[in-house]
Design a protein around this nucleic acid. Sequence first.
DNA 1: AGCATACCTTACGTTTACGTAAGCGTCATC
DNA 2: GATGACGCTTACGTAAACGTAAGGTATGCT
Lengths: 129, 129
Amino acid sequence: MTRTWSIGELADEFDTTLRTIRHYEELGLLAPTRNGQQRVYTERDRVRLRLILRGKRLGFTLDEVAHIINLYDDPPGESGQLEFLLGEIDRRRSDLLQRRADLDAVLDELDDLDRRCRADLAALGGRTS
Amino acid sequence: MTRTWSIGELADEFDTTLRTIRHYEELGLLAPTRNGQQRVYTERDRVRLRLILRGKRLGFTLDEVAHIINLYDDPPGESGQLEFLLGEIDRRRSDLLQRRADLDAVLDELDDLDRRCRADLAALGGRTS
DNA sequence: AGCATACCTTACGTTTACGTAAGCGTCATC
DNA sequence: GATGACGCTTACGTAAACGTAAGGTATGCT
């Protein structure tokens, strides 16, 4: 009784479009099975879609997303490959940590700005909320 | 003796291209002065460029970046405007917090993967580093 | 039977964010 | 006075990530 989903259900759930989901398939990011002509998505596809959309929200290109989710795909059995994978992981991590630094910097600046605004408002005679 | 910069110097410093910097000017994100034909950038331009590139690394479009850095521009003097600005700030902040959640999720998953790889390697008879 | 709904393919269109080429000015230097 | 180095404008090109339109299929009401 492993559940499956139609393309429309996934689009609804993740608030995206049929076209977008099909596009990810064209790029090889998803590979649903078929029931006749219709696409049938499994839990695995659903997880991948979630990862794709998350990657996009973080500003990765779909190519980069492909690399990232392929990391999850096949923990290989050979030691050279494993070491290569560890390297990849490390690069991705550095990338993400840089992004988080950027992000925190912007958040800090927004907080500053927020404080200044409230001060200005107060100076205008408003009540402090 | 307030320093100024040429377009080439900024491109070098921020590891970008002349074209990119000019492009930001076309979009109204930068507004350098001129010495004859040549663009002359002040400290303010430099700060804005840094903000632009940071926004881009976070996956914002240049339009969104424009909105964000314009928040910094003109803390307005009127209370209605100030309240509007506070609302904007809050929306941006929510957005960024969502991104940080995404980011931390990916980092966690990478850590998991990393551990599994190391375990696999160890099981292959390698020495634990 | 007629119609709606959900899905399909093919294919051209669109926006964003620059890349790249062509041709021209201006110093400095060899 | 020719040759780079650096910068300028104009303008067409391009890759990514879908949007959108056209026309067809399958299923389920009513």
